[in-house]
Design a protein around this nucleic acid. Sequence first.
DNA 1: CTGAAAGCGCTTACAG
DNA 2: CTGAAAGCGCTTACAG
Lengths: 342, 342
Amino acid sequence: MATIGDVARVAGVSRSTASYALSGKRAISLDVRRRVEAAVRELGYTPNAGARALATSQTMVIGLLAQFLEDEFAPAMLQYMLGVSTTARELGYDILLSTEEDGTRALRRMTDSRMIDGVVLLNVAENDERLPILRAAPQPGALVGLPADCRGVDVFDLDFEEAGRLMVDHLHRLGHRELILVSQPEHVVERGGAYVWRLQNAAKEAARVRGITLHAVFGSSHQPEIGRDLNAVLDAHPGATGLLLNNEAAAAALPTVLHQRGLAAPQDLSVVGRYSDEFARTFSLPYSSIESAPDRLGGMAVRQLVRRIVGEAGPDEPHVVRFVSPELVDRGSTGAPPAGRA
Amino acid sequence: MATIGDVARVAGVSRSTASYALSGKRAISLDVRRRVEAAVRELGYTPNAGARALATSQTMVIGLLAQFLEDEFAPAMLQYMLGVSTTARELGYDILLSTEEDGTRALRRMTDSRMIDGVVLLNVAENDERLPILRAAPQPGALVGLPADCRGVDVFDLDFEEAGRLMVDHLHRLGHRELILVSQPEHVVERGGAYVWRLQNAAKEAARVRGITLHAVFGSSHQPEIGRDLNAVLDAHPGATGLLLNNEAAAAALPTVLHQRGLAAPQDLSVVGRYSDEFARTFSLPYSSIESAPDRLGGMAVRQLVRRIVGEAGPDEPHVVRFVSPELVDRGSTGAPPAGRA
DNA sequence: CTGAAAGCGCTTACAG
DNA sequence: CTGAAAGCGCTTACAG
């Protein structure tokens, strides 16, 4: 493989001149620049990434820590990953991916060995074990998801509280007075998936303020359990006219459940989910939903991370906690409650 | 950050001795080894990956090239990625992920800059543009998917021909005489997704040999088009009693379609899909299917790749083309054709 | 069993 | 505008 030395020899210049000609970091005569460029083409030269990293302390690689937990819906994770990966590439960075169960080990390996310039953490938990490691690391980090302690990292997340309020208010406005909210499994909460109770608490509070009833339950993240869960909760609350879903698996399972029960949305039941538009298309979900914007969140995290990496953010620019405002995508699955049941 | 020099100083030995004490590549006195280990702990030393890569020409990183094409079903891709990622980690390798549209560019960047020791290609096309680049690269490559020309790479794929035969034979044995096969979109074929016609041709041939009818159609990979496609083909062939699916989106959409039509499997229609067990669980698909084993294929590709990387495979050990034999996972969606229609 | 030195392939002050 | 040299942090022959 050709080295900068080969390029220099072919171009008849010193290695430093060859390097500067390529980086543009100092003035180079047109003649020399052309000869260097010709040599690069002739030799098919590409800088050795390891050598460059060693010399510059920059790897142009961003770590991406994703965990595929048993109780989360894997396809939803993928979209965050793609958001991160796509934006990183746009900014000139490659992605070092870890799907390791033990995120702390993966993070430590990546940061300690200087394989990466910065890291994006997905599946952030309330008290995420990876955060102390990240704070101690020399590289900056950005999170998708809100931990209890945001010090030292940039944080991006959907405003799940606003999402909960939005769901409830939307159905309240349409005349609904009894709602069901199906959240992620309780394990997710126990593990520290704060978004579950953030949305749920806000929804409950909004229902209280509006003086309407909200039955909040946790649902499985898997089939066929979630189908049974949905049937059970619909059986348990025959007076409910609106269904809110903060659970991707539930959304994916609902069409079948409604068919089985002979129900149609919005005629018999109004439905609002919380998932991405991409998700809705992939699974042909006909329900109005709060857009969870995974690609946007992943992209925002990377953009801010890169600002930190290149020093554009300034050494003492405070870290950000940025919430994306939820938007309701209307797919026509909500309407007035069935006659005589409002 | 601590360097090997710091470790050496704290341990009171030379840098080379510190290095050897850690690598175990030459005999070290117990006393020295202990001092070095203590110094490592004290300083929290981890080798700099770039420096090590430069010195050893090994990065301990494997490239993973995945493309998320518009006409493929993204969640199915994820499982191949996880198979690769998990096995790589087990073998001590990290994953450099590219989801770039332009796979040739990504591959060239990774190989030319020596960021990786080897590469796994997903979504391999019949005449894959990335292959010439891979063959010219100094790093070995493994593919998941069968190209027309397998020279210079190790290839792993499901035996789609056998899968096609298996589907047809299974239903033939149960007494079916008219079948429908819904494949991936025709674009996939045009782009070189050989697995589509490999399965389809084998299924057609098996049907011919058995003297039964097979209607082969291409279906969309997206909702809601695929739902319409399914309805259209069922309308067009009212005499068909068996449905074969080589199209993940079709499988995911089928429950709804069958409900809409008031059909049940296997009473009204026998169904056999081709997807992974994980996929079936995620989407609660109640259909018997040919297990596509994405995690297994990804793992096999990585294992063979690592054999090449570490030189275990021998410089002139011929490259392999290995087909995983399809297995039918019985989920009870096939049976005898409805009375009077066999 | 251990150390001094060379070298991996870059970048970048330093000098002219 | 260009070059010679040092240095990034490792590993590994070479020498003892």
